[in-house]
Simulated assay, not measured.
Amino acid sequence: MRLSDKSAIVTGGASGFGAGIVRKFLAEGARVMIADINGDAADAMAKELGDKAVAQRVDVADGASVAQMAEAAQKLLGRVDILVNNAGVTHLPAAMETVSEEDFDRVFAVNCKSVFLTARSLVPVMKAQGAGVILNVASTAGVSPRPRLNWYNASKGWMNNATKGMAVELAPDGIRVNALNPVAGETPLLASFMGEDTPQMRAKFLSTIPLGRFSTPEDMGNAACFLCSDEAGMITGVCMEVDGGRCI
């Protein structure tokens, strides 16, 4: 019960890596807000997981929606000890100059602007408490970028840099900030990363991962639980690769 008496918000919490983090946090004793743009999926998951889970529809790229989420979290959870910025999107694999402006704007709004918006709404809450943990879910794409996902790569590199800057600035306030860099996993984004979900494309992806498998929601939940627990009390500004050796 490493997160006993803690309250957490997990954005993009109704599917993929976010759902794995939600389930692990609940298993370790936390109260969790499942915040997702798919409100129906968040509601269904909260009902499945019991009284310690609550649902909230949020568009993480919209300031008013994020502010509403923060207000609801304080009301429903009592306090916010942990914020996991997990929601993310990508553009389809393409030559960098052919990606549409609409797709570029969407990637940076969801992957980058969201971190600013959640910080604007929740850092003051954590400062008032004198403690808090923020975990940003970036990607190995931000550490070791590959061709044809250029603007997605850049957005995740931004998240890693923002994590370190946030960690330095917020440390005197008792707030730790870290990031996770997963390799591709069995999530709704997998087909988008690959362009097409075929056995051949999966084999090509897996050949770049020394441990020979994708990241799983359980892998992410375990790593997130450690970094957000008091066991990691001396760890801040770390961008941890959960990638089976992909970035070596």
Rank of each mutant, 00 (worst) to 15 (best):
D81H: 02
G244F: 06
A67R: 15
I9F: 08
N150L: 15
A109F: 08
A44W: 04
S15P: 06
A154D: 04
M33W: 01
V60P: 00
L92Y: 04
E28V: 10
P147I: 13
A8Q: 09
L122E: 15
T118F: 09
V123N: 06
C228E: 08
A41C: 03
R57W: 04
I9A: 09
K52Y: 01
G18R: 04
S215K: 03
T187K: 09
P182Q: 10
L170E: 09
P199T: 05
N222A: 04
I248S: 13
A232S: 11
G233C: 05
G195N: 11
F25L: 11
L149F: 00
A53G: 01
G245V: 06
N136C: 02
D105L: 08
P124A: 08
D103P: 03
M234A: 04
D219S: 02
G195Y: 07
G132Y: 04
A27D: 10
M45H: 03
D36S: 05
G132K: 03
V89Y: 02
A184Y: 11
Q200N: 02
G174P: 11
K127C: 07
E97A: 00
A19N: 11
N153P: 00
F17H: 09
F108V: 01
G39E: 15
D219A: 02
R57K: 10
R23K: 13
A154P: 06
Q129F: 00
A141E: 10
G63L: 11
S144K: 14
N160C: 07
T236S: 14
I9C: 12
G142F: 10
D51K: 14
P210H: 04
T11P: 04
N38Y: 02
A14Y: 07
G237Y: 02
Q68R: 15
P217Y: 04
R213C: 07
T198L: 11
T90C: 12
A131K: 13
G78I: 08
M1L: 13
G130Q: 05
N85M: 01
F17T: 09
F116Q: 14
N86H: 01
S121E: 15
G212D: 14
L227W: 12
G237R: 05
M1V: 14
S144F: 09
V10W: 03
K24R: 15
R202A: 05
G16Q: 05
K204W: 10
K6H: 01
W158P: 01
S139E: 13
G78F: 02
C228W: 05
V238L: 14
V32P: 03
T11W: 09
A30H: 03
T98A: 12
N111Q: 11
M166T: 05
C112D: 13
A42D: 10
T208D: 12
R202G: 03
K127L: 08
G221D: 05
E71T: 15
A46K: 05
S215G: 00
G185H: 06
A171K: 13
A128W: 02
G142V: 12
A109S: 15
A14D: 10
L180K: 08
A167T: 05
F193C: 07
G195M: 10
I21V: 13
N150F: 12
V133N: 01
C225D: 02
K6Q: 08
D81R: 03
R148Q: 10
R148G: 00
I34Q: 11
G130W: 02
